[in-house]
Design a protein around this nucleic acid. Structure first.
Lengths: 110, 110
DNA sequence: CAGCTTTATCGTAAAATTACGATATGGACG
DNA sequence: CGTCCATATCGTAATTTTACGATAAAGCTG
């Protein structure tokens, strides 16, 4: 217990913290559905100032949940597939002592 | 986007937020390994005041991640298996648009 | 080049979280 | 009953997070 968290655990906690904010959670969900990587649209859709949204995007970026790419005058954000996948794997194998991993639906009802 | 989060999404975000704090993350991991539900031990192992630990336990309890049961003069905390399982299921099926759920190890190498 | 659009960053105010000590409650035990 | 032990809660200080406006950078377009 007194031993520090591992690098992976710290990364995981960072991701969870980033997603724990409802606004950021919404942003990630939105980016996941709108395949096209929108950026200023997010600002328009949220009741927040542009600078605030930009900060949230930064948090998500630094947590490895989304990726930003400068595209002309704008910036194009999209889901960081690898990061999300890593998170899902981590949670899937988390606490095996107490909870077995759930079967993917596809395997339950092929 | 402007539509509010669903009840489930709010519950999920609440859990993620609770786990996003490294101290609370540690507590959950500790409770998962120490099958016996300890309570004051956590206080002794963490470099925090008893009242602070009690507060963290409250947050975890209200997020549905752990359960507390009064046992004589002490309180016995343990993992809320249902809650953790729910969380894992949610994350496992999260954002199916962008990431397929990972196969449990048991199915990859039976 | 000048003006427009889109973003990021900075400084700062407001709000929330985190931590502590003090205090109250309630069970065990002499 | 009085004392100890374990916990929860309250009030409050310190820290962090969240939000905003202002400003700067960088790329289009006329």
């Amino acid at each position: 217990m007194d031993e520090k968290l591992t690098t992976d655990q710290k990364r995981l906690a960072r991701m969870l913290k980033a997603l724990g904010n409802p606004i950021r959670f919404q942003i990630v969900e939105y980016l996941a559905t709108s395949q096209t990587c929108i950026t200023n649209d997010i600002v328009r859709l949220l009741p927040l100032a542009q600078s605030t949204v930009s900060q949230h995007l930064k948090v998500l970026r630094e947590a490895g949940l989304i990726k930003g790419e400068i595209e002309g005058p704008a910036t194009c954000y999209c889901i960081d597939t690898d990061g999300i996948q890593w998170l899902k794997d981590q949670i899937g194998n988390w606490l095996p002592e107490c909870c077995a991993p759930a079967l993917p639906k596809a395997l339950i009802q092929p």
